[in-house]
Amino acid sequence: MYVVLLNFAAPLDQVDNFLPDHAVWLAEHYAAGNFLASGRRHTRDGDVIIARAMPRGRLDAILACDPLAVRRLVHHEILEFQASRTSPALAAYAEPVK
């Protein structure tokens, strides 16, 4: 599984202009089962995404299509971990998808 830290690389007013596009992109990946949770950091200097287990290259390709990344408004910091415990509802997402 992954925790993706989105670090804004531009002023918030510039980022805010493209948040609707970012929200559509997020919705697509929730529908595909790639993302499990996401939200803003309290500091408003970035966001967080929790992604299911998958090959790292697949995650990299998904993140490269983030409208904020395409416009170079965000940098993605990826923390990969192997979940040794999950809630029953998340157990299937800890297994890599091919």
Rank of each mutant, 00 (worst) to 15 (best):
L59N: 00
L59V: 03
L59D: 02
D60Y: 14
D60W: 09
D60G: 12
A61R: 09
A61T: 02
I62E: 01
I62V: 13
L63T: 00
C65S: 15
D66A: 00
D66N: 00
P67W: 01
P67S: 07
L68R: 03
L68I: 05
A69D: 01
V70E: 09
V70H: 03
V70L: 05
V70F: 03
R71W: 07
R71L: 01
L73M: 05
V74A: 13
V74M: 08
V74G: 06
V74C: 02
H75K: 10
H75P: 02
H75E: 13
H76W: 09
H76M: 07
E77R: 06
E77Y: 08
I78C: 14
I78V: 14
I78Y: 06
I78W: 08
L79G: 03
F81S: 08
S84P: 12
R85M: 13
T86I: 12
T86W: 08
S87Q: 08
S87G: 06
S87M: 04
S87N: 06
P88W: 04
P88I: 05
A89C: 07
L90D: 09
A91I: 05
A91H: 12
A92C: 10
A92N: 10
Y93S: 15
Y93T: 09
A94G: 01
E95S: 15
E95G: 11
P96Y: 04
P96C: 02
P96Q: 11
V97L: 13
